[in-house]
Each structure stands twice: as structure tokens, then as C-alpha cells.
């Protein structure tokens, strides 16, 4: 039952995302790419860029996309509902006593443990995406992609470019490189 699987998978992703947005990337990679094969790593990287340049929360964008591509209209509804529901349920459950629950020592200390782990997980995701983009097949270095990444990284650091500008720069550079006959 693909609809149920989509719903449950994204429910799980929504439930375990601590810290929002990008913290979700490792979880999506584990479920959507490694376990179910709904997307390739390459498509996933493209989609992170697309999600950044389309309106709305990243989580909603990516769940909708996975839903549509695997099971059409209904699929996208199930996936999106799945990713949003844990938030809504948890917030409504604790709404009346939120401060008491969140200031309780057990909640605080558990979150303190999760924070560094989330960074570690995101680093793995960054490495695997980078490894895939910078090396072609037989460990051959993809110099064009590496230089482009270094260039974009400098732009972000020095000029503090916003995410959308960066994505547009990346797209423009991709087309420009294609014009020069360099593909990657």
C-alpha cells in the first residue's frame, strides 16, 4: 500500500526532525533514498536547490515532491500530511503546558544530547552528496564541479549571498559551463 507507506515514512521523518529544515536531510536520505529508492542521490541534491527556490517550508516541498513522483496526487497528499501531522499533534498536546514540558530537566537534557548528533548527521549527508558530485564513477575527480563549489562557497562567505541568489548563480554557472563545452 504505497499511500500508507508514504504517509508513515514522512510521519517518521517529521517526528524525528529536531531543529527544523536541514536537520531533516539525513533522515530523508536514510528513508527516501537508501531504504525506498524513491529518489536518487543526484535528484535529491537537485531537489534541495529547487525546494530552496520555491515558496514554503522545505519539509513540505520535499514530501510533496516524493509523493507526486511515486504515487501522484493522492501520494503527495499522504506524504505532506505525514510530515506535518507530528508537529501539529505534539504542539496541540503540549500547548497548554508547553513551558512546563520544555523546561523540565528531562526534555532539556535529552535535547542537549541530540544537538551535536544532528550536526554529525548533517555532515555525513554533506559528505555523501559532495562525494557523489565531485567524483565520477572510478574515483576520477570532477574538477569543474569542485571549482564551482569552491567559487560558490567563497561567494556565500564573502558576500553573504542569500540561498536563492546562490541557487540562481549555480544554475547560471551550469549553463555557462555547458556553453564552454564543459559538462559535469
Amino acid at each position: 500500500m504505497i499511500y500508507l507507506t508514504l504517509f508513515l515514512t514522512f510521519f517518521k521523518i517529521g517526528l524525528f526532525t529536531l531543529g527544523g529544515g536541514y536537520a531533516m536531510i539525513p533522515l530523508i536520505q536514510a528513508e527516501v533514498i537508501d531504504r525506498h529508492g524513491w529518489m536518487t542521490l543526484e535528484q535529491f541534491a537537485e531537489f534541495v536547490g529547487i525546494a530552496e527556490s520555491t515558496p514554503g517550508p522545505f519539509a513540505v516541498n520535499i514530501s510533496t515532491f516524493c509523493g507526486v513522483t511515486t504515487a501522484g496526487f493522492l501520494g503527495s497528499l499522504c506524504a505532506t500530511a505525514g510530515v506535518v501531522l507530528p508537529s501539529v499533534i505534539i504542539i496541540l498536546l503540549i500547548a497548554s503546558m508547553a513551558n512546563r514540558v520544555l523546561n523540565h530537566w528531562s526534555t532539556k537534557s535529552a535535547l542537549q544530547g541530540a544537538k551535536p548528533a544532528v550536526v554529525g548527521l548533517l555532515a555525513v549527508a554533506a559528505f555523501s552528496l559532495a562525494g557523489h558530485a565531485f567524483f565520477k564513477g572510478e574515483g576520477e575527480l570532477n574538477l569543474t564541479a569542485l571549482l564551482l563549489a569552491a567559487g560558490l562557497f567563497t561567494l556565500v562567505r564573502v558576500f553573504k549571498l542569500g540561498a536563492i541568489t546562490l541557487i540562481l548563480c549555480g544554475a547560471a554557472a551550469g549553463v555557462a559551463l555547458q556553453l564552454c563545452g564543459l559538462s559535469f
Binding site: 541534491a45 554533506a126 559532495a130 564551482l148 556565500v156 541557487i167 544554475a171 554557472a173 551550469g174 549553463v175
Partner: peptide, 22 residues
């Protein structure tokens, strides 16, 4: 080709997010 560029830009964004959180 444009998507290839977007892919690289997205990786930069993820690295950036990782550094910021770190």
C-alpha cells in the same frame, strides 16, 4: 546543465548549514 549547477549550489548550502549549526 542548469540542474547540475543547482546541485553544486545545494551542496554548498548544506555545508553552510552544517557549519552554522556546528
Amino acid at each position: 546543465a542548469a540542474l547540475g549547477g543547482i546541485r553544486v549550489a545545494a551542496i554548498v548550502l548544506i555545508i553552510q548549514a552544517c557549519l552554522r549549526m556546528g
